[in-house]
Design a protein around this nucleic acid. Sequence first.
DNA 1: TATGAATGAGCATTCATTCAT
DNA 2: AATGAATGAATGCTCATTCAT
Lengths: 189, 189, 189, 189
Amino acid sequence: MSKKAIVLQTTLELITKQGIGATSLSQIIKESGVANGTVYHHFKNKEEIITELYLMLTQDFGTVVMRNIPEDDIKKQFTVMWLNLFYYFVNNPLAFIFSEQIARSPEIPQSLKDKAREYYHDIEEYFKRGVKEKVFKAYNTLVMEELFFGNVVSLVKIHENEQIKLQEKHINQAIEISWRGFLKDKTII
Amino acid sequence: MSKKAIVLQTTLELITKQGIGATSLSQIIKESGVANGTVYHHFKNKEEIITELYLMLTQDFGTVVMRNIPEDDIKKQFTVMWLNLFYYFVNNPLAFIFSEQIARSPEIPQSLKDKAREYYHDIEEYFKRGVKEKVFKAYNTLVMEELFFGNVVSLVKIHENEQIKLQEKHINQAIEISWRGFLKDKTII
Amino acid sequence: MSKKAIVLQTTLELITKQGIGATSLSQIIKESGVANGTVYHHFKNKEEIITELYLMLTQDFGTVVMRNIPEDDIKKQFTVMWLNLFYYFVNNPLAFIFSEQIARSPEIPQSLKDKAREYYHDIEEYFKRGVKEKVFKAYNTLVMEELFFGNVVSLVKIHENEQIKLQEKHINQAIEISWRGFLKDKTII
Amino acid sequence: MSKKAIVLQTTLELITKQGIGATSLSQIIKESGVANGTVYHHFKNKEEIITELYLMLTQDFGTVVMRNIPEDDIKKQFTVMWLNLFYYFVNNPLAFIFSEQIARSPEIPQSLKDKAREYYHDIEEYFKRGVKEKVFKAYNTLVMEELFFGNVVSLVKIHENEQIKLQEKHINQAIEISWRGFLKDKTII
DNA sequence: TATGAATGAGCATTCATTCAT
DNA sequence: AATGAATGAATGCTCATTCAT
């Protein structure tokens, strides 16, 4: 493993444990066993480490969300999207932390924040289609998108905080609640 | 206004602007115009400032959520609870930041985190009742509670990030989505 | 007990535990339960507390050393002086600390240091007499005095550090060693 | 001279002048002309500077005491040991300060204090031999050792405080007093 | 006599970063 | 590519002291 990779890996672990703000370069250096100057040989500054890490973690985000989406069934599409997002966050805690902290963190430059939003484009398209096909009520797309996203996040948080041991039935319940919320009146569920 | 109050107020403003981690004592001191030692005369720690601030802001949290809840109508109760929470966060950005950062912040001691959870007791009770009265489907209470809370948070975030200028209709849409999610099958909405 | 007495007592305890340098006013204030300003009402500054304490503890020092000295027997005089000094230090640990730290402590003004030396006047006189009476060899008086004093101190240190449990026989051995050192050649011991 | 050496040297000088407690890092930094961070690049702590200094100064302590000890003559051995110790302290004021403050200083970790005691092993052996060979009376070894050490210290203190200008004859007197104290009855001196 | 709010200099330490090798 | 010495601004905190009540 290259020194650069070691630094990135160490940083990933530290941020996952402590958050972005609490993770110092000195800590990264101490923990990774890499020399001071070596870090600065590979990265311009601390921000660049985080940026690079963020890009690594999110580059496949867009594709992940839309992976294995079935062709026709809009309900099944919803479920797959929901689970894609859920398991992505569960398996990539750092991506989750980033997505949570992204709005407030001055450590993350605006350009990256904008980039992150692009990933939601597909989700937005999905809801627009759903409304057009009269499956969903004609809610504001951003509102729908944000609530959808928030629902996934809520469940990830339960999983994270381990208030209850999350079972498959709980996940299914959450998906159902999430789905029903958007449905048009009198839709047969 | 006492020096102590000035420090608290200044800290409140700075944290609201920059987050907890990015707010240093030196900044608080510079901004408040209070002397170094004076801060430490009133507070044992930097942590104590934050803790005290948090307690100030959240002490009425529990009552706020349940304020003006109508007696009988479970749907109206839902709406009022939802709006109480929403406007509480909108009007108390710091409380919102705290509630968002609370899980991950090492700055906030566990005792406070536990205290925060107590406030959700009434919400939990509400959902239990709703299930018992067969208005809501028999979902896991914690899941319901967390999704409910997450929905409000989603909308506050839209409001915060000003992606769109949030109108009353958007809020109503969000409440409707939120409400419908929990409803029992075939319930007349 | 007056507040002033409380402050002095607390300071005494703290210095005995931690030494002069490590004892701060804030600590004294916290430990004594007396208010900030009250301390400054009774004492001009930190130095004055220590000075006053020092005077309290050493005012009877001179008399203590010469207490119960028998009239004629120069050997018995030696023993009593030795034990007076030894038990004074054992029972007044602070006086011991002061006497040990006195030379290097900038906290103690020179005037007090000079005053402390006066107490040795009687000891000096004793040795001068001993030399004149040809019991002791004609060593330099200051050297004798300082070695005598150092011998007592050595034993107090053994007692303090508890390397061995000090028994009466050890004390007697030390006195004997001390006494014999000064004797004139061929003196019948 | 490396920056690290400069820091150690400066610290040595300052402590010699003012004592351990009164020597602050800021002072060391100012005096040495080395940057703040540089000190912390080389030393973990303020304590580590002192510890390293102490180790530097005392590592040859054991050998110094036993340097040039003649083979047979127990009296001459005594004199050489005595002078070795005396001049070591005179020439290494910091070692003297350390050895004086060692018991009470919380700044010096216990591990170092223990290490310091090891150096006395040779002195202890010497007195045991002297007792066995019936040159010395059968006093407790620790008592003898401590008094011997205390005698040297007493003379160093006279030298330090410059109460009198210490001449060779004074030193010889002190050695004689010291030596005679331990002698067995009727020993021809 | 007693209080405690207020002060600002000073302390030990951490931080991100630069540079010569 | 890799190292680690060097930097100095900044941080959280302690200190002795002053002053109005």
